[in-house]
């Protein structure tokens, strides 16, 4: 029996998040007497594939066929579900990423499985199998019991640490029959944001709100992000006003994030915003209104004018980084 993990790759490379996901899956495998098997699609070198063996995978299935070169949810889910059957997998684990969310529900229907989307930690119990996940857009958590024989999980990013467990890994080319009509939805163009740390990948996020008064004032946030190696995001009004792109909006109806450090500048902290960021490990708020609700949720706060505080803080951070 196996725990099958869909290890996404980006132009043939894995990310830190891939190893976190694999470590999580491997922990479940150890606790359920299973082997950890990875599967990936695309042109990934053997050297890169072998890295998966450091985190517990004893086997990696790889599909390098041209017809799968571009993502299409319908065909990919057939490929993955068939692999799960071939490996007698009783768990299939995805990242709670855009592609994981697109695939996991389809795969779970094909396998007649139970699906838990957005696990935030290892199972609370194995018998019965209970996963803790967020609900009400981060305003609450629930215990979610999976009663099916096969279980499909998606794991939230930045919720599990990498654990090394070196295994001798076997690389196997893998394919299955997928009907042509499963490739109807075709990717015709990919627009990548280059040179920018994506909001969901960043371990530190600097966030700006309406208190910053206009898009021309983001320079000091960009400087802070540069010093800290952080990503940049914003509150909903800021993206609604088109000061910043929608892809940077975090909150209940934007992206839900969980960085190690979240620095909110000129963000009041409406309940919908907090819902999207309250899984951050440490939250700092800088706001000139001492009554801003964000101070209730934050770990550290400064009451003051962002236009005075942020440049000073940037200086202090620069000195700290240089020391």
């Amino acid at each position: 029996m196996a725990v099958l993990v869909y290890t996404e790759n980006w132009d043939g490379k894995f990310k830190k998040a891939t190893y976190e996901l694999l470590s999580y899956a491997n922990e479940i495998a150890k606790n359920t007497g299973n082997e950890t098997v990875a599967i990936t699609v695309g042109n990934v070198s053997d050297e890169e594939l072998k890295k998966l063996g450091q985190y517990g995978a004893v086997k990696v299935l790889v599909n390098k066929e041209e017809k799968f070169a571009k993502f299409t949810a319908q065909a990919y889910s057939t490929l993955l579900a068939d692999a799960a059957k071939a490996q007698s997998a009783n768990f299939v684990i995805f990242a709670n990423s855009y592609s994981g969310r697109a695939l996991a529900p389809r795969v779970s229907v094909k396998l007649d499985a139970s699906l838990a989307p957005g696990a935030i930690q290892l199972p609370t119990s194995y018998e019965p199998f209970v996963i803790k996940k967020k609900a009400y857009s981060g305003k609450a958590f629930v215990d979610y019991e999976l009663t099916g024989d096969v279980k499909v999980l998606t794991l939230n990013q930045n919720s599990f640490k990498i654990v090394e467990d070196t295994k001798k890994i076997v690389i196997e080319e893998y394919t299955t029959d997928v009907a042509d009509n499963e490739f109807v939805a075709k990717v015709v163009d990919v627009q990548k944001e280059t040179g920018k740390l994506s909001v969901t990948d960043a371990e530190i996020l600097v966030s700006g709100g309406r208190g910053l008064k206009g898009p021309e004032n983001w320079g000091m946030l960009e400087e802070m992000a540069e010093i800290l190696g952080a990503g940049i995001c914003c509150s909903r009004p800021v993206s609604d006003l088109d000061w910043r792109p929608h892809s940077e909006h975090v909150g209940q109806t934007g992206k839900v994030v969980a960085p190690n450090l979240y620095i909110a500048i000129g963000v009041s902290g409406a309940i919908q915003h907090l819902a999207g960021v309250n899984s951050s490990k440490v939250m700092v708020v800088i706001n000139n209104d001492p009554e801003a609700p964000f101070f209730e949720a934050a770990d550290y706060g400064i009451v003051g004018d962002a236009f005075e505080v942020v440049p000073k803080l940037n200086e202090a951070l620069k000195n700290f980084k240089a020391s």
Binding site: F71, D189, E193, D201
Partner: peptide
């Protein structure tokens, strides 16, 4: 469609 770190244009 939004993807991690960008967008995809899909025809179907």
């Amino acid at each position: 469609r939004e993807i991690d770190g960008g967008k995809e244009v899909i025809e179907t």
